[in-house]
Nucleic acid binder design. Structure first.
Lengths: 353, 353
DNA sequence: ATGAAAGCGCTAACAG
DNA sequence: CTGTTAGCGCTTTCAT
């Protein structure tokens, strides 16, 4: 109630100079030629008064708000949406920007709605970050044209916007290799049967890794189901009841791995003694709480957010036309816990010994 | 690249009126007396040109930005932080506001840092929402004084700010009652042993509910451990190995319930056949994926965010001094799934029959 | 080496 | 009923 906002005039008065000088000193204007002693006086006055520039006024004048709009799909339901937001926020703030967050619902192949974008446009954001919930190709509002934008975990149909995504194939390679490195040669997979853009690519990466390791791919060793624990359980049962079941299983996600745990327990198979498993996604809630704790691969959510923000700000500040690399692909990491072990003695290359 | 931003002047020119008239029409200024025909002309021109007011300029002039700052602790690690943010965003946008998001780390009993608040102040937000990660009492930066603020799931030490929180005791009652309503009389509890503000209150609510249902409270029926699956497992083992174990268990959170599932499985106790369980928190990742699916109580995260935003905006727009109710307490809801059943035949009031 | 003044796009008195 | 004008707080030419 007490303190009225202190403006540039107050600082000028306190320092005994004009507002011009204050502005130039505080903004470190290159060509400004101000005496060293004056500079000090200004800076001291400013900090003594607790002066902070009114960013609204500055934005109006400079046509640069220092705000980036972040449109996030399904923020409430997507696991770890918070991580990418944290990444963008921290990267943005390091460069003097703040983020304006808009949550949206994902509808079909559409990207942000016209009205979401309109709000951001009216707020004069310097650029927009679109955080997708299901890595798919989307169509973008026409109004967005002209504003720098970058996509997180998605492409636009015109393939004209920069995007940053996780290296999913690399991630599955990490997962599968964790298994083969432990000596497993019969490795199975629990894939999703859902309509998911990652379904095919995950399977292919699985096959490729096997091939690179000189292992034969056997179609019956991949079973599918809905990507939930229940789906994983059912698929796992089919997998483990095979005449010649795998000694290790890679799962499409951690929830399916959770289902696999149950199937294994029911069949008296201990993990990792009789069966090794690795998941995907590193849902802490699942992976950290399963017993034994699940080895899985983590998507670089934080880095994706940070990198996207960096790209965006580069585009905002760079000469219009100096677009940087269109696509950034970030590495996943393997989170090693306790679900991978050596090949059980009575199983292995020669089945049922 | 093509369209230059259309301003109020363009609309005025297109409609053949002055900017004043445009402003008044578009803002529905009460006392403005403008002909109906003129209004139409203005509105049509505006929409034809795709005019949207420059919110920065408007804010500068009206001293109201229409932006609320949301400081969120631990956005990346707190489960469902996204839900409260979604709630505040949707509520805010319904009233023409947008949110500027700042993520912060939770440090001790401190609230938002001085610098986080300073950034928001410079941006001229109309108010701030502070979303805490661990419902504790916190100290607020002095600079915040004068700006409307509301706390989500926390109190300030001075107890001077409005806050909105979940009715945890009510939630516990819901959980325990689900058990007693099914006929259980020997109900146990898995409590956290962590330093957690909710530890005591959860226990008390448990006791109170039992008392209200005319049930005796027995200290040995509550076992504690770290609030993880591992902690829940260990505590559950102690509980179930009691000479006279409970037929139903209420858990501090869903992770501990997950541990209880494992303990029960190892001891050959089926859920809900031999043992009923209800969790707390509704972590979908756990509750929905356990088998059988876990009955648990859900915190009103979305509603908390929405309500907090409503409160805040009321305070922003209301006559300074017309503060509404200081505290809002929102109800939890029971999410019924498959982990609660009747009292097993061979157990019950008379133990070991 | 420093200051005066114009103006970013809008709203709100005040005139007509 | 509608138009003119003066700022909101800042940056930035242009004078001095």
């Amino acid at each position: 109630m007490s303190s009225k906002p202190v403006g540039i005039k107050d600082v000028a008065a306190a320092a005994g100079v004009s507002v011009t000088t204050v502005s130039q000193v505080l903004n470190n204007v290159a060509y400004a030629r101000v005496g060293a002693e004056t500079r000090d006086r200004v800076r001291q006055a400013a900090s003594r008064l607790g002066y902070g520039p009114n960013r609204l006024a500055r934005a109006l004048r400079t046509r640069r708000s220092g705000v980036i709009g972040v449109i996030c799909e399904e923020i409430a339901t997507v696991p770890d949406a918070g991580r990418v937001i944290l990444g963008s926020d921290e990267a943005a703030r390091r460069r003097g920007y703040n983020i304006m967050l808009i949550s949206s619902v994902a509808t079909g192949s559409d990207g942000p709605s016209e009205s979401d974008v309109a709000e951001l446009l009216d707020r004069k954001v310097d650029g927009v970050l679109y955080v997708a919930s299901g890595r798919r190709a989307l169509r973008l509002p026409t109004r967005l044209t002209g504003l720098p934008a970058v996509l997180v975990d998605a492409d636009d149909v015109a393939d004209t916007l920069p995007s940053v995504k996780p290296d999913r194939p690399g991630g599955v390679r990490l997962a599968v290799t964790a298994l083969t490195d432990a000596g497993h040669t019969r490795v199975g997979m629990l894939n999703t049967s859902d309509e998911d853009p990652a379904r095919q690519s995950t399977l292919h990466a699985f096959q490729d890794t096997l091939a690179d390791d000189g292992l034969e791919f056997r179609g019956d060793l991949v079973q599918s189901g809905p990507s939930t624990a229940a789906g994983g359980y059912a698929a796992a049962l089919r997998l483990l009841k095979l005449e010649n079941p795998p000694t290790a299983v890679f799962c499409f996600n951690d929830a399916m791995a959770m289902g696999l745990y149950r199937a294994a327990a029911e069949m008296g198979l201990t993990i990792p003694g009789a069966l090794s498993v690795v998941g995907f996604g590193n849902q802490e809630m699942i992976a950290g709480n399963l017993h034994p704790a699940l080895t899985t691969v983590e998507l670089p959510r934080y880095a994706m957010g940070a990198r996207a923000a960096e790209h965006l700000i580069d585009a905002v500040e760079g000469t219009p036309g100096t677009r940087t690399a269109r696509q950034a692909v970030l590495e996943c990491t393997l989170v090693q816990r306790d679900s991978v072990g050596p090949v059980p003695l009575n199983r292995g290359v020669t089945p049922w010994a």
